[in-house]
Design a protein around this nucleic acid. Structure first.
Lengths: 177, 177
DNA sequence: GTCTATACGCGGATAGAC
DNA sequence: GTCTATCCGCGTATAGAC
């Protein structure tokens, strides 16, 4: 892995763990094993690096979701599979957490991939739920995504994955077999 | 409002807007109209102030919820009323957002009120849902809280309250009349 | 109780040598 | 491309005067 790659990956990890405000160039350099000069040679600064990191994280999240959503089974089974997909629950959602960062939301270039990811996801689920015969697919799609995002919040608050699983299984039960 | 009060209230606002990591003593002092010496006279430092602010915010949130949950109507109507309660959606949840802050989660004194608030809320909803005859009240209660918390995430990502409302109404529909 | 002075390292970056 | 030096203001206090 070359320096550019290591810088981006380190930034992704730190954004996930500590958010944008809590991530310093110095911390990125140390994790990447790169010097000051090296970092500023490859990137214009912290926002530039964050842009690369966030773009990649958002893209990856869509790909992961699409993988399950276009998988085998009836539309409802695929939504259920999406809900039950394995996740690093206690680490939270690497995209959703950015939503809480005022400096990310204030910068159009950083905010856009976050907004697009959730719009895409809601739309994708809406299509499946419509196929499944759900009466209000738009609203239900929002509910599905919200349960996942809110499940992370509950799990982190509790320091335990149980509330996440509960929230997911509670929703699946409500969606009907 | 005396100085102590203004310091706590300013801290509450800043924690809501910018989180713990993004909030500096200097910013607190400026918003409170208090000097450096004044702040350190009344509080031991940033964590001490944050503790007072978070305790109050958590307590207030429980009181607000209890108000609706112990209101008039059938148990299910009260859950619905809780879900439809007015909220400053685009500002996010002042308690839920703390969940994302590594320095808050790392400090037991700061973390405890956050954990307790969500445990209390899930338990309170569980009781109502059990009375309402829900088959799995524990799981459904987690789903209800998660939809609210996740709704905030979606709304902030979109810069628009619509996905929040969609998520809430989608859940209410699933819960049945 | 509040103010001003002082401290020291970090955040975020630029400059220029190698 | 990477390194070291340097910069300036902020974060987070402490000390002591008033």
């Amino acid at each position: 892995m070359d320096t550019t790659e290591r810088l981006i990956e380190s930034t992704r990890e730190l954004l996930w763990e500590r958010g944008y405000v809590g991530t310093s160039p110095k911390a990125i350099q140390q994790r990447a094993g790169a010097g000051q000069g090296s970092m500023y040679h490859h990137f214009a600064g912290k926002p530039d690096l964050a842009r690369a990191a966030i773009d990649r994280t958002a893209t990856e999240m869509r790909a992961t979701a699409e993988d399950v959503l276009s998988g085998p089974g009836t539309p409802l089974e695929r939504v259920t599979a999406y809900l039950r997909r394995e996740r690093e629950v206690l680490r939270g959602c690497p995209v959703g957490r950015l939503t809480q960062d005022p400096d990310v939301m204030a910068d159009e270039a950083l905010r856009a991939p976050v907004a697009e990811t959730f719009m895409w996801l809601r739309d994708r689920l809406k299509t499946l739920l419509a196929e499944a015969g759900q009466p209000d697919p738009t609203a239900t799609a929002a509910t599905v995504v919200a349960v996942v995002q809110g499940g992370y919040v509950l799990a982190r608050a509790a320091g335990d994955t149980t509330p996440f699983t509960d929230a997911i299984e509670g929703l699946i039960a409500l969606l009907g077999t």
